[in-house]
Computed example of a mutant assay.
Amino acid sequence: MKNRTIVLFLVLGGLGAFGKLYAMADSISPKVEPVMEVESVSAKSGELDPAAVKVKTGEGEEQTLEEKIRAEIAAEMSEREKVLLEREKAAAEKEENLKAVEARVDVKVDELKGISTDIEAAVGTISKRKRVDIEKLSNMYANMKAKDAAAIINTMDIKMAVEIIDGMSPSAAGSVLGLMEPKKARDVTNAIFARGEKIAD
């Protein structure tokens, strides 16, 4: 009688442990409702042996509880690894796209720098040619009779008149200004003076 009581106690204790393992398996994969058959309880510890518990899945396949738990854990880890790999792939693609955009931007910047250099060179060439032309015109009007030069410069716009008069020697400029219309001579003088102040600033 005493031996039967001990065996019964061990069986009941094993079933309690079995209940805990079943709850664990159920929390891992709630979609599968296995039908479990207890075949062995450890007589030494009174605990359920997962390797000896047979489980039937929804597909009718039979496996031990231990195999089922390991398979579900492995499946979950595989799914997580898949998600991580997809994220890494997406991040790598974004990085490659960003590098491609940066490369295109660098090319455009280099092109704009080249265009800017060309424009500056063209402007410099035009400015140099303009200075040469104005210098020639100033010398030409300076070598004319002051009366004739004044009559022609009177008809010019103020900007051109300033450039030509300013390019003459002081004595030639004074002679021409003295024979120009008073208002035009005053406007030219004021413009030359204002330009000198601007350069000094």
Rank of each mutant, 00 (worst) to 15 (best):
A75Q: 02
A71G: 09
L84P: 00
A75V: 02
E102W: 02
A74P: 02
E81L: 04
S78N: 09
R70G: 09
M77Y: 05
R104D: 09
I69G: 00
V105G: 02
I69S: 01
A100I: 07
V101I: 15
R80E: 04
R70N: 15
K82P: 02
K99M: 11
D106S: 05
E102T: 07
A74H: 06
R104L: 11
E95K: 11
E93T: 10
L84R: 12
A103V: 09
R104Q: 11
L84Q: 13
E88H: 14
E88L: 15
R87M: 12
V101S: 12
K99F: 08
S78W: 01
V105M: 07
A71R: 12
E72I: 03
D106F: 00
R104N: 10
K99P: 02
A90G: 10
E95G: 06
E79P: 01
K94L: 15
K99C: 07
R80A: 03
A103Q: 09
A75N: 04
A75C: 01
E93A: 15
I73L: 09
I73N: 05
A103L: 06
E93H: 08
E102L: 08
R104F: 04
A75Y: 00
E76R: 05
E86Y: 00
A91Y: 10
E79M: 05
A91P: 08
E96C: 10
K94G: 09
R87E: 15
V105H: 04
D106H: 03
E76L: 04
A75E: 03
E86V: 03
E88T: 13
K99I: 11
I73V: 13
S78A: 13
K89T: 13
L98S: 05
S78D: 07
